[in-house]
Amino acid sequence: MSFLTIENLEKSFGANRVVKDFDLSVEKGEFISLLGPSGCGKTTVLRMVAGFETPSSGIIRIDGQEVVRLKPNQRNIGMVFQAYALFPNLTVAQNVGFGLKVKGTPKSEIDTRVAEMLDLIGLSDLGGRYPFQLSGGQQQRVALARALAPRPQVLLLDEPLSALDAKIRVSLRNEIREIQRRLGITTIFVTHDQEEALSMSDRVVVMHEGIADQVGTPFEIYNAPATRFVANFVGTLNTLEARVLDPASGRVTLGQTEIALNRPLPGPTATLGLRPEMVSLGRGTHDTALSGTITEVDFLGSVIRLRADLGGQSLAFDTFNTNRIAPPKVGDRVELGIDAGDLLVIEG
């Protein structure tokens, strides 16, 4: 049985159902991200696990124990908030030791644990500072240490990086992941940033209008999106309409090109997805060639983003910049190489 299980979780605020029939099983030590646009219900799920919101129905179990009826202070959970949730009147060390102090832990034990935690986040010499004397990144590391100090069963991270500068965000996310691995703590991470979710997680839950659209590894989410929403929300995706010639074998025409997808396809048309980086200029070693006219050239430095018209459908694709070949110009007729296996069939 999984360490943390959520079954049939529902939450309504008045007539507004913000979380619908949500299921999730998290293994011990796993890092799971809830990814979705704002208002998708991901934060509400997290707050229900923490105990700040009571589910309208459903079950949440941590280590076999049903926790829905427990108050937040009885759940033994660590949580890091979006920003500025450190207690401003307490020093860094007092913040980190807070969870132990309220449990009545002896002072010497608190001091040892606080030192250990400050060492973990690399801020050993800042224990006497007040939060206002720290940078945003330092504050969030202290918040992490504070959450971890009482040895929680589960760590919840509610967009902990979104208030920080881009540079610190990247270094801190590596640090968080590293600490999480070292302690082997089961973690749920809420974010609207797909890069964060993909780079940090063992598995990602993509949420949309209160529903978990897809649960999978970052690789699965990116390469085999289960729904149109996931396909569009995670990464950049071209969606192309193809005419189905033979539903049984999955032969379709895309523009003027016939392609065998080798899987059954219902209906007279199918929606296909294609990542820009899967397309190359010129057929090369690819198994399929499409022909089109260049309509847009964006020179981005190392990458050139192009857009071509395939007889009425627009396809964005990338090519690396080299100084040997000049990039195509708008209006050029080009041949584009793709592999049939890279085409995603998008359902729904």
Partner: peptide, 15 residues
């Protein structure tokens, strides 16, 4: 008083 302070205290086990 920020809501996060109360919630952070609660989740850390404070009454």
């Amino acid at each position: 008083l920020k809501r996060e302070w109360r919630e952070a205290a609660q989740v850390l086990g404070a009454t």
